[in-house]
Amino acid sequence: MIPLLWGILHTLLVVAAAPWATGLTRRVKARLQGRRGASCWQPYRDLWRLLQKDSVIADSASWLFHITPYVVFVAVWLAATILPTLTTDMIMTPAADLIALVALLGVARFFTALAGLDAGTAFGGLGASREMFIASLGEPAMLMVTFSLSVLAHTTSPAHLVEFVLAGHVGLEVSVGLAMGALLMVALAESGRIPIDNPATHLELTMVHEAMVLEYSGRHLALMEAAAMMRQLLFLSLIICLFLPWGIARPGDAAPWLLVGLAAWIAKVAALSVVLAAYESWIAKMRLFRIADFLGGALLLALLATIFLYVSEAL
């Protein structure tokens, strides 16, 4: 019963907390630019406003366009639900390991890109093409991070990875550092942040994610936006879960530990959001084709992480 209960609570938590994390990043960025910025709660108001609006759908769009926001939102929500953030003792945790998590995000991306192509506009195609280009390097990098962690801990399950780290099996290893570096780079790309994509831009020709969802409006746009926020939270949680898991409750821990887990998670998400905002404020967006170098670098880091494991083993 307990795992089921925690599972349901966690499901609600991730969807409720995602806009806050985005709002926090935006606010910190505004402060760093010398602006006052909107409150952290502004994304909730934005989503609510979008929900209230009528949805306008392009004449040329097919049924795929209607269902995509739901598919994308649910896929990302599902992925965020499965990833342990407060406790590893949740009913859904074994349903998907890291490979499946990557694939779930892949589902969201696949359908978003298709929706970008559906209305038959140049901008939608532009965004879809760029998104798939970025993903074609980001996703392998993510899988290779999984590979190196799996070689280290003999598991691809995030819950078991958390337990592996918490049990103190991991010291200060070069490999872990390399894998974390790779994951950070991928996280920036996959959640559409500067230097890969600029969520705040109004220049259609430079957009990636925004170009794909350009034809969306009303509740559909709200779902797409919420999914993007949740994806950002998911990647923060993933970094926390794999590399900073301290505070996450484990099966058998008493219920109060869950509160500790919650507090630790909120603190870590907030800290990472601030770091993200600071990083974004001090870097320009890179040229589109430099992304290949950037994510290729992430892929190489992850590969090195795996290979270093043997090297350090041999020493």
């Binding site: 760093l32 630019q33 010398g34 602006r35 230097p195 831009t201 404020s281 001090w282 320009a284 967006k285």
Partner: peptide, 16 residues
């Protein structure tokens, strides 16, 4: 120009 390269900090300062 800096803002169009997604470096809004410069625009903020220049605007002030």
């Amino acid at each position: 120009v800096c803002n169009d390269a997604a470096f809004p900090v410069m625009l903020a300062h220049c605007t002030t």
